[in-house]
Structures are given as C-alpha cells and as structure tokens.
Design a binder for these strands. Structure first.
Lengths: 240, 240
DNA sequence: AAATATGTTCCGTGACACGGAACAGAGCTG
DNA sequence: CAGCTCTGTTCCGTGTCACGGAACATATTT
C-alpha cells in the first residue's frame, strides 16, 4: 500500500508538474478508484495538494526534502563557495551529486538572466551529458565509470557524446586536468566547465559554471572553478 | 497505514536529524514492531535511509521536495533578487512564506561566515519571533493576524516579544514603513530587517537580511531590502 | 549472572485497503 | 436532445496484508 502511494509520488519525478486523476492512474497502472483514494489520503497528509481536479506535490514534501541531512549539509557547506564562484563569473553555477547513472542537482544559483537549461534543483540528468556528470565520472569508482561507458549513452542534443570512445577520451582529459568541459551537450547554445569536489579520495560532488556558448572563455573561468572546488574539498576534509 | 508512515516522517520536522528505532517508536507512540516494518518499507522506497540502527530522511524526499511547484517557482523567481540583496549587504539573506502560525523558510543565502541562526531552509519558526514573520503578519489577512495576536506568543530568546500590545505596535509600524524589524528575538546577537513580497494585494512571501547585532545599521540596509522586495513583487505581478 | 537496553522474527487475527460495478456530471457529436 | 465519452466519485463485498503482542537475539550495564 505504501508502494502504491510511493509510485504515485514517483510520477512527479524528475520534472514536477501537476497531473489529473486519470493521468496518474495511467502512469501508475493502478485502478482509478485506488488512485482516487490514495490521492485523497496523500492530500490529507500534505504530501499532495489538489487544485480543481489536478494534483501537485505538497508543501510537506518541500519541508521534508529540505531537511534531508546529506543534501542539506552539502548544500550548506557549498553555498559560500558557489556564491564566490557566481560573483567571480556572474554566470549560472551548479552543484550536483551522483545517483546511479545520473546527476542530481543539489543547488543552482544564477542572476537575472536565466539560461535555457534542463537542470533543476532536485532534477536528474544523464551523467554523460553534463559537465558536472563528467567531472563525477572522472573521479568516481572506476568500475562504475566502465559500467556507464558500456551502457547506452543518452543524448539531450545533437552535440551529446554518444560514442563511448570519444567519451572515454573526454573523461581521461578531465582526470589529467582536474576539469571537465561540456559544449552544448545538455542544451543548445550553452557550454560548461566543471570541477570535482573531494571528500577524501573520491568525488562526492561536482560544481560547474554554465555559460552561453558565444561568450564561453574556459581559460578565464578555470581558475575560479578550481578555487571553489578546492576550497569546498578542503572544508569537507577538515569538517569530518 | 499511510497515516502511520507519515507520522514517522513527521518526526523529522522541523529539524531533520537522525533517529533510532526506539526513538521513532516513542515519538509516534506506535509499537516498535510496527515502526520497524514501516521503516523497512520506507527505506526500500528511498524515503528513509538507514545507517547502523539510525534512520534519516532519504534522497528521494530531497528530489520530490525540490520539485514542489509553488515553492520551486517562488525560489526560482526570487533567487536573483536575493542574490542582489546579498551582494549589496554581504549579510545572510532569507526568503520565507507563511504556513499557519509559522514561517517556512524557502531560501537562505550567506557567505563564509555563518550566523548562529535557528532558521533552516524548509524549517519553521513562529511568525512572531522573526522579521520575515512580522513582515508577513503586517500584510496578511487581518483576521489571521488577530488570531495570532490572540493566541499564546512563542518565545525563542528573552528578547522575543510576548506582549500582544507591543507586538501589535510593531506590526502597525511595519504596515506604515513597509519594513519589519527584529532585534535578537529569534537568536541572541542577531538583528534583522525584513520586507514583504506582494503578488497583487497580499504578501505571499517576505525577505530579510540578518546581521550580527553589533554591526546592525538599519538605515543602510533598508534601501537594498526595499529594492529587492519591490523588484520581486513586480516580477510576480507581471509574470501571471 | 541477572537486568535492561537495543533491534529482529514469528504468526494468528481482523481491520481495512482493494478495485469492479454503478453513478454523476461536463463536454462533444451526430 | 438523445447518445456517446470523457471526467471524478460513491458503494460495498472480498480477501489480503498490515497489525502488534510475544518471544528471541545480541550488546551493554549492574
């Protein structure tokens, strides 16, 4: 029964939004009656909200989600460094962690001009299509990296790297330089430079700067990204 | 059964943390056996995580919570203005909304020096003890404000206002000036200035700057806070 | 060795979740 | 306007599976 309720909530990943009863019933392949009853319960508990025949995620989920310790702590530690990075570059800054074959974005800060990016806080993207993802891959367990390279490679734009050989080269370059690059592989017109954040030997997160392709100057961004990632890594090491 | 599972999750509000089986059993006043089984289910579903006999909120909650539409949209719209405010003041900046008799903090940004504040993103504090809360009270439905004034007034420090008369005066001042002040009412040594964010006539949120008492200069902060709140209000009005 | 914590397994009972069938509207279509 | 087809909703009999007391396993304290 919990399973059924959870599968309803799962309909909202990874993009949020709002659904009607029938849609939920179809997506979960549960009988309409069952979904109806469960949604009513979930609304009563504050996990869903209802507005005229459509259901959205509820405020209590926001509260609970913000309190998830590992994410909250990482965010809290990282925020000042992301802040520094944003001020140094004035561009959109991301912080993400690995979850399976995907990146989960933990934080994202930006100014008034918003890039047309598919990344959302709490959202997921394929590791292989993003700067953050490549930085994580480059400094993760080698076995996992091989698994990802062996599997089918997702593609978000025509520039997404779907050739495992090219991808391996990119990852090796990142391992050497400590920086991962991404050019229009996640969104057209947007390039990105990323660096891993270490807690000890393994990368526990990565941060990146996303920039409109037309004014992407990697050489100018690299030092700031390095500094931020290094500062955060040092803090994590000292803090535990 | 959902109710029971939800009451387990509710143990983690408003402060997160991690609990042992017995603690959860006590807090929910459910039999240990039942909690055991439910926690196992919740872990399986990713809503809790287990580490050596203690349970914490799970990663899936983070994902879902970040996707809650109303909060997400507000945060997204507000972030650039909070950013401006932070850069103008270099102090800790908050964004909060009203939920019952409490503030729920939606966003908080700060630099490397972290104030000893009880506020957390997703956390709740009494409306009456915080700058954000007073700004919300001053520009909310009058009936609700009266209800809050009539009820018992919470107290977080010796400076928290527990006298309804004094509190009403403070709210009226905020209504006149468009700014709410708070001095060590939420945390010792921290003062705060806040402004409401309007979506039309009613305040849907409020933002604030919290400053160590020793260098609190309201006159210098006020323009930046006003500008940010006004800018965000304008954006919300135009965006809908 | 006894006492008191913890988490965990077992299992019989009965409450209550389940979901098919039927109903109630709203919005089209012929 | 009847007839069809979508919505969401109520009803209710069936049987499943959540419930929680009792017993157990293990660690720590007395």
């Amino acid at each position: 029964m919990l399973d059924k309720a959870a599968s309803i909530l799962d309909c909202y990943r990874p993009d949020g939004g709002s659904f009607r009863l029938t849609e939920l019933s179809a997506r979960t392949s549960l009988p309409k009656t069952t979904v109806f009853r469960l949604c009513a319960d979930l609304v009563r508990l504050g996990l869903l909200e209802r507005e005229a025949d459509t259901y959205r995620l509820g405020g209590k989920l926001f509260e609970l989600g913000s309190l998830v310790p590992r994410r909250h702590d990482l965010r809290e530690a990282a925020l000042p460094f992301l802040q520094d990075l944003f001020e140094a570059t004035r561009e959109t800054v991301h912080l993400g962690v690995r979850e399976g074959r995907e990146v989960v974005y933990v934080e994202r800060i930006h100014g008034h001009d918003v890039l047309p990016l598919p990344s959302r806080i709490g959202g997921r993207l394929p590791l292989t299509c993003t700067g953050v993802g490549k930085a994580l891959l480059a400094f993760s367990d080698a076995e996992l990296t091989e698994q990802v390279l062996a599997g089918p490679l997702a593609s978000l734009t025509p520039y997404s790297i779907t050739d495992p050989v090219r991808l391996r080269t990119a990852i090796e370059q990142a391992q050497v330089s400590g920086l991962a690059y991404e050019e229009q592989e996640a969104a057209l017109g947007v390039s990105c430079i990323a660096a891993p954040v270490f807690d000890g030997q393994v990368a526990v997160a990565a941060l990146s700067v996303a920039v409109p392709r037309v004014r992407f100057r990697p050489a100018q961004l690299a030092p700031a990204v390095r500094t931020a990632a290094l500062g955060l890594s040092r803090l994590l090491r000292s803090g535990r």
